[in-house]
Simulated assay, not measured.
Amino acid sequence: MMLKESDAILDEVITAWSGKRHWPSFMGDNIVYESNHQGSATGEFAVRQLFEDNFPGGMTVHVNTTNKVVRSQTQSSTIAAYFYGRTTDTRLQNNDDVNFGGMIVINTFSGSVERVRVHMNWLKGNKNIVHHWHFPYERQWQPGDSVSPLISEIDAPWHAYKQAHTPLSDEDAISEAWFQYAWALDMADYSLFNGAFSDDASADLPPMGKLKGRRMLVSTLKAFRMPWPWIQHYGVPLQIDIAEDRQSASFLLGRIIPEQDKTADGEALYGAHYKIELKKEGSEWKMSRMDYFPGWFTVKNEG
């Protein structure tokens, strides 16, 4: 699957899932939909009904996607991405809204979407607007809690396909190194850190401080993540500079804060940024240094 094809599939599935009464032609007849906020369904009629019930009439919704990763093998493909959005009910007079976010994994076979998994990770705002949803647990798991339909070790595209047959440019592969780091941290899939960092990697990550070596990075990040199972890192590549020998690169990435991703003028707004250095090990790009800088900025004032 080409990356442009995956962009189109992701965009159309998100549009349908957003309750827009749009049903893409590439949806399989026996499509399976699994989610932690709506439940599950099989077949076009049942899945379409859940999609339309997601944001019923009177609700406005805007959904964005980031951190997209694609893996393909022969006729099958996996498309994974983060999403975040905002919805409001125009029938209410208080103009309240609710922000939400999570992960989506789409499985295709021969160009047909066979399965869609959605894990709603967090909600902020007036939850009464989406009272028809099952709310995600924004705390650590406890006995009696339901089981999530999205399990990172199984659904992460890096595990589903060990070798990517999707042609990646160096720029795409560099971006994906950080996406792999974000998935590893957010989904507690710590084995993925091995593919994201070089063995001699270092980082400056407030409030954890300066970390040196992949072992220290992984153990510290694991301890940092444990209390916050709802944590999610949305990132947008802003600038990639590759050395002439194509063996090292520098990378500027903006971190999106979903509740405030635009300025008053509609310009993209970021709540922090990462300055990253990478080196190529064999055919893989790995991060050798990553520094995190909190603080609001737009691309124009980052310089």
Rank of each mutant, 00 (worst) to 15 (best):
G295A: 11
F251H: 13
P207N: 14
V118H: 03
L185Y: 14
D89V: 09
S25N: 07
P237S: 13
A196M: 06
A46I: 02
F297T: 11
D145A: 03
D291K: 08
G271N: 15
D29T: 00
D53W: 04
K279I: 15
A272G: 10
S40A: 13
L217H: 07
A81W: 09
H37Q: 14
A203R: 01
R91S: 12
H273R: 12
M27R: 00
Q93C: 09
E52K: 05
R48I: 00
E153T: 07
A80M: 12
D89C: 07
Y292N: 11
N121R: 15
F26W: 00
F109P: 01
W122C: 14
G195Q: 06
A201T: 01
I104D: 04
G125I: 05
Y190N: 13
E171M: 12
A156I: 08
I14F: 09
P207F: 08
L253T: 09
G209T: 09
D155S: 12
T78G: 02
N64L: 14
M1E: 06
I31W: 00
F109N: 10
D53N: 11
L92V: 02
K280M: 12
Q93R: 07
F26L: 00
T87P: 04
D265P: 04
Q232G: 14
G282A: 10
A203T: 06
S6W: 09
F45P: 00
T263Q: 13
G209P: 08
K222R: 15
G295K: 05
S219G: 02
I256H: 08
H233F: 03
N67R: 10
V98M: 05
W285S: 14
M120A: 10
R21P: 05
A188K: 07
V63M: 07
F224V: 07
A201M: 05
T42M: 02
K127G: 03
D200L: 06
